[in-house]
Amino acid sequence: MTRQRTPHLVVLTGAGISAESGLKTFRASDGLWEEHRVEDVATPEAWVRDPGLVLRFYNQRRAQVRRARPNAAHKALAELERDGFRVSIITQNIDDLHERAGSRDVLHLHGEILMARSTVDPRMCYPVHRGDIVLGDVCDKGSQLRPDVVWFGEAVPRYGDACEIVEQADLLLVVGTSLAVMPAGALLRQVPMDVDVILVDPDAERLAPPGVAKIGQPAGEGVPELVRHWQRQGRLWVPETLLE
């Protein structure tokens, strides 16, 4: 007897899901991220110009992440996985809230703030469970450590891995992202033609590309509602109320 394959839910999450846990996004209306210009704290040029400022900025963000707690959306996705569904998460967020909620298959497209990496060998990474990264903290090759995050203007090394995951999806759920940040926004082009896509975002009506089902709710409301549908039915599906 041929063993039936478990349907694969792939979830792409953005800043909106973390914002509901109290973590601010960099796309503030005034163009500032925590009172800093993105160009001053999140680019390779900023690191060369003032590495101390960049480290202090990310040390503060790291402290915020440690204080934050997973919200209802994070918990619902983890619960779905515990119920036997196959769930892969691709997140644009650098926090660990998906993991703390219990999700096990998480790809961080833009890196992880609770990791440090060498400035001469990106393969050399170190966990930062406590404390900060400061000037003078070096890798095993003697090079200064930096946050293990992808800055603006840098390549996204795990994009290829993310494309492979999306290509294997039986349903794609997009949560809390404008799909404006590239190359993450281009992941929708990798979805097989016969695979449905659902966008959960308060601004879903405006943001959703043609053919994408829309749930115009915050992540903490829309995701648990979907998960309850799937748990009751024991399968992944798009509710008829979302079909145009």
Rank of each mutant, 00 (worst) to 15 (best):
N59Q: 10
W230L: 14
D121N: 15
P122A: 05
R232Y: 02
L12S: 03
F152D: 01
V11H: 01
G234W: 15
V38F: 07
A28T: 10
F57L: 10
E45R: 15
H110K: 08
E154W: 01
R82Q: 15
C163S: 09
E39T: 11
D40Q: 12
R130N: 03
G220D: 03
T241E: 15
A116H: 07
V227S: 08
E99K: 11
L242E: 13
Q231C: 06
V227W: 03
L242W: 15
D203G: 00
S29M: 06
V156M: 14
Y58N: 01
L109C: 10
T25C: 12
D161N: 08
F85H: 05
V54D: 06
G216C: 11
V120Y: 09
A169P: 07
Q190F: 15
A28N: 09
R27I: 08
T119H: 03
R62I: 02
L32Y: 08
P157G: 04
G211N: 05
R67Q: 14
E99F: 00
L172S: 13
V128E: 07
V195A: 12
A116W: 03
S88Q: 06
G84L: 08
G211K: 02
H229V: 12
R82I: 05
P51T: 13
A15D: 08
E81T: 01
R37I: 04
D148W: 12
P127K: 06
L109T: 10
D140A: 10
G131W: 02
P239Y: 12
R37L: 15
A76V: 04
H229D: 13
H229S: 06
V197N: 10
L188S: 10
A116G: 14
L12P: 11
P127T: 05
A101Y: 08
V181P: 15
A101W: 02
V106A: 02
E34Y: 15
H74F: 11
V227N: 10
R100Q: 07
V134I: 11
P147D: 10
T13H: 01
L107W: 07
D40N: 07
W47G: 04
E99I: 04
I17G: 02
L187N: 03
L23E: 10
W151Y: 10
K141D: 13
M1V: 12
L145I: 07
G22P: 13
R100Y: 01
P127L: 11
M193A: 15
I198V: 13
L32S: 00
D201P: 13
C139N: 05
L226I: 07
R189I: 04
R146T: 00
V106K: 06
P209G: 14
R235Q: 13
M124A: 15
H129F: 05
L207E: 03
R61V: 08
